[in-house]
């Protein structure tokens, strides 16, 4: 840990495993970060050169308190994530965190629905395991373009999770998008207490629409390129409509979890 700082850490990479096509799970030894809650993120430096220059934000994928570890789930999309995917155990990573707010932790009798699109699984896996550990009911819905882009069954089995999968090519689970699957579940009369969603913005917009139709509150976890990640630079904002007025809110500091009804998707 960095001297005189609660938020700056140097952590050892304990394990790096490929869990799906282009998708890696990193386990970091970071006892100082094990107080993190589902929804929070870390701001990670992918190297020591100036290219890539900025840190990259990643949702905390799980906290293993016993092992003193935090886990990250990373999809390779560019040079920074590619460099991270090539690290070897023992490597030291420079990160800030835990940052951001959390999914609302209210205990609900009725089941919550956790709806993940692709790498949007990262924070919802953490939330799902926390609910499982607390004995709270939930369903985890996970969608991807094809079966190989999603982690295999063993990835979920060893955590005691039973996700409902949706793939657009129909190679695993429901044939269609995760939004189509959610719609089918809601149409069939299921009434979750709330929906927690994370994934691409167009997907989140459709989940929020369904939530409005079926009167289920939706919480969304947003992704954004960030510079500071502490609320200073105003670079990561997303549009919201609050009392009819457009407002830009910081994904890093005001979020990343927001009330979906307030998000101004039409503006994007």
């Amino acid at each position: 840990m960095h001297p005189n700082s609660d938020f700056m850490h140097r952590c050892e990479l304990v394990d790096l495993t490929r869990v799906a096509q282009g998708c890696f799970r990193l386990k970091l030894y970071a006892p100082a970060l094990t107080g993190a809650e589902p929804g929070q993120f870390v701001h990670l430096r992918a190297g020591s050169s100036t290219d890539p220059l900025l840190r990259r934000p990643f949702s905390i994928h799980y906290v293993d308190q016993k092992a003193g570890e935090i886990w990250l789930l990373i999809r390779v999309v560019g040079p920074a994530t590619s460099a991270l995917s090539r690290l070897r155990p023992g490597a030291e990573l420079d990160l800030l965190g835990p940052l951001g707010n959390t999914f609302p932790a209210r205990e609900e009798a009725a089941a919550a629905m956790l709806v993940a699109g692709g790498i949007g699984l990262a924070p919802l896996y953490f939330l799902a395991r926390r609910r499982l550990e607390a004995g709270l009911a939930f369903d985890l819905l996970l969608g991807g373009a094809e079966g190989s882009s999603l982690p295999g069954d063993a990835f979920f089995d060893c955590a005691g999770l039973k996700p409902m999968l949706a793939t657009e090519d129909g190679s695993r689970g429901f044939k269609g998008t995760v939004v189509d699957l959610l719609k089918q579940r809601l149409e069939s009369g299921e009434k979750p207490s709330r929906i927690h969603a994370c994934g691409p913005v167009p997907m989140l917009a459709r989940v929020v629409d369904l939530g409005k139709i079926y009167a289920v509150p939706v919480h969304i976890s947003l992704e954004s390129l960030m510079a500071c990640a502490v609320g200073a630079c105003l670079g990561c904002v997303f549009p919201f409509k609050i009392n009819g007025m457009l407002e830009y809110r910081r994904v890093c500091r005001d979020g990343p979890v927001f009330n979906g009804e307030e998000a101004h998707f039409n503006f994007v």
Partner: peptide
């Protein structure tokens, strides 16, 4: 001031456009 619509940031070689 409301500021500009997002995206507001993009990284460039050893630089940042905001």
């Amino acid at each position: 001031r409301l500021g500009n619509p997002p995206p507001r940031l993009v990284e460039t070689p050893s630089g940042l456009l905001n």
